[in-house]
Design a protein around this nucleic acid. Structure first.
Lengths: 139, 139
DNA sequence: GTAATATATGAACATATGCTCATATGAGGA
DNA sequence: TCCTCATATGAGCATATGTTCATATATTAC
């Protein structure tokens, strides 16, 4: 692939050129960060999170998942495909049924930390409504 | 808001009706999972991850961030707005410059776990290419 | 073999998203 | 005041995404 086209972004002024130069080589590669982004992207949709939470409790076949989420079988299957491709779920066939289960221990950790964030965030916003700080950006 | 419209999804057959009925009330609310999804969504784009990683090293003004990422000031500003609204970054004004920094300890944990996943995943895929399992879903 | 059923998948559609471009805002210096 | 510069933001556009609908595939029962 044709890498490194000439980038002309010299519109910007540097405030701390040394810091910028020192920082750049220490950052992760774009590929790595893209993979990370793909992982988080799998968790960025509430339907997929609902699927993941349900599967974290027990293995389920597609039709039961469909019933749990009250969504169409097709919608569930499409999302399962995505989760499968990212290796976040595992599947096994049993006759006509296909059972899905979680295939990643990291997900529990990500959920746990995510929940901490949500909880503290709801605290923060309820505080800031009765306080003088950060009246902006509350959208 | 008009909640609970009549949902008719009885197209699906239940395999384990008891399990489904038992599982449903134990799951998180849709609002909670939507908030979680919003958080992960903020991390689901590589530009934003690059911004977050840079800010995790040091506070930066917009123009230096722009230089570090080699992207336009406008693109960076738009993404910073999103991160600000989600309270993931903090900003302070200094004359004409605006300095941004990370405003969330959870992000480090999310990054760490995410990286573990990536690393193991790259192991798994390099293994499976020389093995007989999982020839499918390798996309 | 055929029929029935569980799941997978392609196409289509509406909506969301990330960038660019042009411009607005806000602060400092003349 | 007027000008300059750093940042913010709205509009527009191209692409991505989540769902539905129709249909394909795979397995069991007959």
């Amino acid at each position: 692939m044709p890498n490194d086209e000439i980038i002309e972004l010299c519109e910007t002024t540097l405030v701390d050129a040394d810091a910028v130069a020192a920082l750049k080589p220490t950052l992760s590669s774009r590929d790595e960060l893209q993979s990370l982004a793909d992982l988080f992207n799998a968790l960025s949709d509430s339907t997929r999170l609902r699927i993941i939470e349900a599967l974290s409790r027990r293995e389920l076949c597609v039709c039961d998942l469909s019933a749990v989420l009250e969504m169409s079988q097709s919608a569930i299957s499409h999302q399962l495909r995505l989760l499968r491709q990212l290796r976040l779920v595992r599947h096994r066939r049993s006759g006509r049924l296909v059972y899905y289960s979680l295939d990643d221990q990291h997900i529990h950790g990500l959920f746990a930390i995510g929940y901490e964030h949500i909880r503290e965030e709801s605290l923060r916003t309820s505080q800031s409504s009765s306080r003088y700080l950060n009246s902006e950006d509350a959208a």
